[in-house]
Simulated scan of single mutants.
Amino acid sequence: MKDRPEGIDESALRHALDAWGPGTTALDYVPLGFGDYHWTAETPGGRRFVTLSDLTEKYHCGIGPEAAWHGLKRAMDTAAELADRGLGPADGGFVVAPLRTARGESVRRIGERYAVAVFPWLEGAAGDFGDEPAAAERAEAIGMLAALHGERPPAAARALPPELSARGRLEAALTAVREPWTGGPRSEPARELLAEHAGAVRGRLDDLDRLTARVLARGAAPVVTHGEPHPGNVLRHGDRRFLLDWDTAGLALPERDLWLVARDDADLDRYAGLTGRVPDPEALALYRLRWSLEDVDAFVAWFRSPHTATADLEQAWRGFSDTVNMLLS
């Protein structure tokens, strides 16, 4: 995030980082990404990358701080176990998992609202969410996904059904467009946009239900998925590629990852050749639609809540507008 988190100072963060070993000598905020807060930390063991998660906003991990904490912990534990098996960068792998504390924890809580994880520092450059990788880069990403999907599920991996995380909340917002929203500067614009397209959004929810019923009826086995293997979460360093941001990890159909990477039949054929599993077109459509509806719900929840004008808010507004228009196409 570009804006720093509310209600926490760096002294509390430094204290929490002592669990990974005392002696942090420098802590510098990095205005990077969207969703979590990041710092670089200089420690006796070398440079580290620190991520702070706001549990009140971690909807994909659980609704509310307590549920989000447990969901986040299971996702981080899943990634950590994959790295323990030899899939981490130090062993030539691609899973950039959180480092464990002296007590073996992959993530620690700071108060009721926040949780912190520490990652190895890796040189390289990541892309952006909207990038369109060339065929060779997609092939590399599909290779990573094929290897991940073939792994035995870690004990911590939680099942992630294709239903929306907070269906009731989005439906309540669709009903609430009849009354003014007063959370902040983007409340009324968001209400007006959602009110204008409420029928179309409800129709897309019905489409999601139909796709979910048909896909689940086939009984395909779930696999370990990353959840967001888009270019913004792929770090490139020379000829190596690494997958970042494992807070969305869990058990789901492989199409949960594939729709974000595959662009044509050649990509899907490559995955089938590596895994022996032919991607399901309806499952790809299901997860593509689910992504957009999840975004609409998360943005609307933000705009209906108390908020002020910030750079992150404006980025959220652009994302909300684009997503609503995408649902109409």
Rank of each mutant, 00 (worst) to 15 (best):
P162L: 03
D28R: 15
G124C: 04
D269A: 14
R103T: 15
W69E: 09
A200V: 12
E188P: 10
D267N: 03
L122Y: 09
T51S: 13
A221P: 07
R85M: 11
L274T: 08
E123D: 13
R108F: 03
L243S: 09
P120N: 01
A249G: 12
A90E: 15
L148F: 05
L194P: 03
P231G: 10
L174W: 00
G92I: 07
P231F: 04
R277G: 07
G88V: 04
A283D: 05
A155F: 02
D297S: 12
A19E: 06
L13S: 03
V107F: 06
L313E: 15
E10C: 00
I63P: 11
G276S: 14
A157N: 05
A221K: 15
A156T: 05
W259K: 05
L145Y: 02
R204N: 01
P231A: 07
P162C: 08
A155M: 06
R214D: 12
S321L: 13
R152S: 13
G238I: 00
E66K: 13
R167E: 15
R290D: 07
L194R: 08
P180E: 12
R318H: 12
L268N: 01
T78K: 10
D265K: 04
V118Y: 00
V30M: 07
A134K: 01
T56K: 12
A16R: 01
F119R: 09
V215T: 08
F242C: 05
A155T: 11
G64L: 07
F94M: 09
P133I: 08
S165F: 15
L216H: 03
R290F: 08
A80L: 11
L52P: 10
T225D: 03
R109V: 04
L244P: 01
F303K: 14
E282D: 15
A217C: 10
T40I: 10
E179N: 08
A90Q: 14
V96I: 14
Y29Q: 06
V118I: 01
A115W: 00
I110M: 05
D269S: 07
S106V: 05
E151W: 02
T43D: 04
V300Q: 08
A26I: 02
V223G: 05
L328V: 06
P5W: 01
T182I: 13
M76C: 11
E171K: 07
A19N: 04
L253D: 00
E112L: 02
P281W: 11
G183V: 05
A146V: 10
D77G: 11
L145H: 07
F303V: 14
D280T: 13
R158F: 04
D128E: 12
L286W: 07
G86N: 10
V107C: 10
R263E: 08
E151I: 02
G7K: 02
H197G: 09
L328P: 05
A217T: 10
L251M: 14
W20L: 01
S165Q: 13
A12W: 00
A195C: 10
K2M: 05
V30P: 01
G46P: 06
T51C: 14
L216P: 00
P229I: 00
A195H: 11
H38W: 04
P254L: 02
Y29P: 06
P189C: 12
L235G: 02
V224T: 13
P31G: 11
